[in-house]
Design a protein around this nucleic acid. Structure first.
Lengths: 342, 342
DNA sequence: TTGGGTTATGTTACCGCTAACAGCCGAAGT
DNA sequence: ACTTCGGCTGTTAGCGGTAACATAACCCAA
């Protein structure tokens, strides 16, 4: 146990200290500090003064226990290094800002077991709601969420069954749409580069939709390459090189995310390959980074901010009259950029 | 108030429910669930069984209130979109993993007022420690932290006075070092591109150190350009173009971060400018992204992971015998990459 | 003057859990 | 046989707030 940093004058302050310092009951102090109930201006003044002078910080633990109300919202996401999730978070924070609710983030690293324990840990703080990425969870996780008696919003994905509410896009459809656009543009030898993470269900579903659409056109993937870990931009380069070396007649590369797509784009441009003439490229997510690239990579916006906002609105109860269990499907827009010929 | 998502069978479970279901006292159940004290194997078994069957999730609010112990560590950072902070977070999480402690993240958007309220909010949950980015805070923030009676670690920066402990690098020195390397390489017409955020004290200190070293060599900045918001990569391009247009004889561009530096690098390469012959470039942070660029941008590693780790160790009390108040200075390494001629 | 309605404040009983201590029991020590 | 002790379990009293109700003071209309 580390000791207190400064000379701790005495035990930590409680309502009683403020109440004694201002000559009113604890209850009145409580009322003042929460702006609840009627308190005369003079008393309010005196109490606030005393609280400020003492440096009193309320104990929300006690408050929450007594009032059975907690102003926290759990947000469970797989990673913070993907940029997609910080953006979703931004949407959540924005919307929660003026509701008195506060997001608390938990990261799972794409591990279902870790997710389970994060959810358990969060629920043990009795939050007012939970926002969880994805629809795939362990049975125990689903059970806990279902039992919790609070609004649950699963985000990012809607291809599956939600515990309660869901906000997201259909990744299967997104993959299908991209494939259709690629085929329509005349590409035929199409390869895929993507993450290998076995638990990135959304990337998987996009690929499924993609292949489905290819099949419908009588095509199949000409090649595929997977990666995990490392600098995505660099991996994109490496994978692109590997694929083109192994299957030189490939005329389109579909990447599971923009970052590796950007790497591929840079590599192609350096090699002097005609993009999108000889080879077309496409990624997924619509990340801001793309704006600074020499050429605009084709991509699909995943509505990240919007997803965060909508999810938060559901938790905050801004959807009046709705009992929960709603599924909101957002529709991503395909941006062809400069890497699909038209 | 949104209603419960599923048919709430009854009120939420408490220790008593588990105790009744397993025929022992609440205290024994509590002991089992916390692995504390002696409990016979048979009883333990029975209790765990009952808890699992009921789907009991302990109420940490009550637990924390009763035990005066909270396993949370507040982490206050300015932004999640900078990539630097998620990395620090990763270091914190890693180290906290096996201590039973849990990070709780708060984001301030570089606003001191927002920081103050985030700190207040966090302290009201009585965490076991706080990790706060930067040394500059409002007086109220500093007072609250000092009074809290818990270990406080200010991270990223050590050029200033810490409330308690600090882990970071000297940005002033980092700026100075970079300037010295640039001057040593023979560049003389040096310009700066950076963020305009008035509250990014670390970027400011780097620039101060940078100019200080320039002055010592009888030089001063040939030009400077600031930005705020938008895609950093794109801004890097735009600023680079603006500076080179306005001051064509510039032979070095120092960027306040790698992302805009990368944008500048891409722009220069596209324009066919000889880098590092005609113009040298350098950024700051050592972000992973740089690995995938056509050329390695000169940069300085900010020791982000290490900072997170060390800070977490202090909170977790892994520095035995230390009472707090330590300042750990890490030393960033300059990586000249391919954009400073040698 | 009196009763009813405000407004401002205090009192009481928890919220769900754990620290601290008390008890009980069988095994071991003398 | 009588302590002594350690393993196991229960009892009691809060932790620091807040909901709900009680109370006091005051105003005004009848």
């Amino acid at each position: 146990m580390t000791k207190a940093p400064v000379v701790d004058p005495r035990r930590t302050l409680t309502l009683r200290d403020v109440s004694e310092a201002s000559g009113v009951s604890e209850m009145t102090v409580s009322r003042v500090l929460r702006n609840r109930g009627d308190v005369s201006d003079s008393t309010r003044e005196r109490v606030l003064e005393a609280a400020r002078a003492l440096g009193y910080v309320p104990n929300k633990i006690a408050g929450a226990l007594a009032s059975q109300r907690v102003n926290l919202v759990g947000v469970v996401i797989p990673s913070l290094s993907n940029m997609v999730f910080p953006e979703v978070l931004a949407g959540v924070s924005d919307t929660l800002e003026d509701t008195g609710l506060q997001p608390v983030v938990g990261v799972t690293n794409y591990s279902p077991e870790r997710e389970e324990s994060v959810i358990y840990e969060m629920l043990s703080w009795r939050p007012s709601g939970m926002i969880v990425a994805g629809l795939e969870h362990t049975d125990a996780s689903r059970a806990m969420l279902a039992q919790a008696g609070i609004p649950i919003v699963e985000i990012m994905d809607i291809d599956g069954e939600a515990v309660d509410s869901a906000v997201g896009i259909s990744h299967r459809r997104a993959g299908r749409q991209m494939a259709e656009a690629i085929i329509a543009a005349g590409y035929r030898r199409i390869a895929f580069c993507g993450t290998m993470m076995p638990y990135d269900h959304r990337a998987r579903k996009r690929l499924e939709g993609f292949e489905e659409a290819l099949a419908k056109a009588g095509l199949s993937l000409a090649d595929r390459e997977y990666y995990s870990g490392g600098s995505a931009l660099l991996k994109g380069r490496e994978m692109t090189e590997a694929v083109l070396k192994r299957t030189p007649d490939v005329d389109f590369l579909y990447y599971s995310n923009d970052m590796i797509g950007a790497g591929g784009l840079l590599w192609c441009l350096e090699k002097g390959i005609d993009v999108p003439g000889k080879i077309g490229l496409a990624g997924f997510n619509g990340v801001e980074l793309l704006d600074g690239l020499p050429r605009r990579l084709a991509t699909m916006d995943a509505c990240r901010l919007e997803i965060g906002r909508r999810a938060a609105e559901i938790i905050a109860g801004k959807h009046e009259g709705v009992i929960g269990g709603e599924v909101i499907e957002l529709t991503p827009t395909l941006q062809k950029g400069d890497t699909i010929r038209s």
